[in-house]
Nucleic acid binder design. Structure first.
Lengths: 163, 163
DNA sequence: CCAAGTTTGTTACGTTATAACAGATCGCGA
DNA sequence: TCGCGATCTGTTATAACGTAACAAACTTGG
């Protein structure tokens, strides 16, 4: 199985290659897990990989429409459900928007660094933090199902541009 | 200045007293900082303290309407802006909803334990975690402006109720 | 008291998301 | 290879969340 790339989107990189590798990794994963990357699902994933930033459901829906696929909201929300459920994309709560997963591996509790200007999102994992949260939750007898850690601010480039 | 209470909402407690003390703390804070807790702002805050769970803007708007105050969305969103800006309430991104602050002190990076069944929210602070995030952000040359850490799951009571 | 700034309230609209259902497609077993 | 159950696509319609723009009322300080 191809390994998905895991890197810092805020660094310059060969974007063509990054998209291609990420798509290959998802295709491999789908094949291995017998998941169907149908046309609308693939269209949404490719849009996210291409833009490489958090996109709203309605921006993605425009892509579906342009591709001659469904043009109504449920189509894009269902494609997103599939991508989120299988770890190929993430929802950024703060923006009500979505990004392709850049972290590679399956289930993981990620920290998202979200630039409010360019909407690019870097994904990091902090295992130490996850342990802290576990401890905190167990003190409250709380059963954890989902963790969202979102850091909003400005990436170096946008901060430099005087945003 | 009265100290606001800081406790675990998932534990049984004297709710009447908890509301009264929290309101007193906000009044004191407003007086100290020359902030105006006007009728719509107070109405929204009291609703949040009374219900003691995450409430949507439109639920809060119903309260304003019942109180004979404004009945259109901008009124409640402005009151919420005031409460959020001054640390008297928090937005729970995951739910597009709002809770009264139960943590007492001013600016703080909190961890929210959000029960998806009853919508009660426990607020904890994890200083160690904040330091981790700082380190992570600086590695990416990212300027942090706002941090949201939300843990979704089930509180002990709702888990027990077989949710 | 007056002027400047702040707050409330309104109308109108834009954005985000889901329910319910019909028809198309897929994959498997007879 | 046929057909049946499960899955997926697409539609219409509507609900939930949020903001722009502007007029009127209130508050505060000179």
């Amino acid at each position: 199985m191809t390994e998905a790339p895991s890197f810092d989107v805020f660094q310059p990189h060969d974007h063509r290659r990054c998209r291609k590798e990420a798509l290959a990794a998802v295709l491999a994963e789908c094949s291995a897990r017998k998941l169907r990357l149908t046309p609308p699902r693939r269209c949404v994933l490719e849009a996210l990989l291409e833009e490489h930033r958090a996109m709203t459901a309605y921006e993605l829906l425009d892509r579906l429409r342009e591709a001659g696929l469904g043009s109504q909201p449920p189509v894009v929300y269902r494609a997103l459900d599939f991508l989120l459920a299988n770890g190929f994309a993430h929802r950024i709560e703060r923006l009500s928007a979505f990004v392709a997963c850049t972290h590679g591996e399956g289930a993981h509790e990620a920290v998202f660094l979200v630039c409010r200007a360019c909407r690019q999102v870097a994904e990091a994992s902090l295992p130490a933090l996850a342990r802290n949260l576990e401890a905190e939750a167990s003190e409250h007898a709380f059963r954890v199902e989902r963790v969202a850690i979102e850091v909003e601010g400005l990436c170096a480039r946008c901060a430099g541009a005087g945003a």
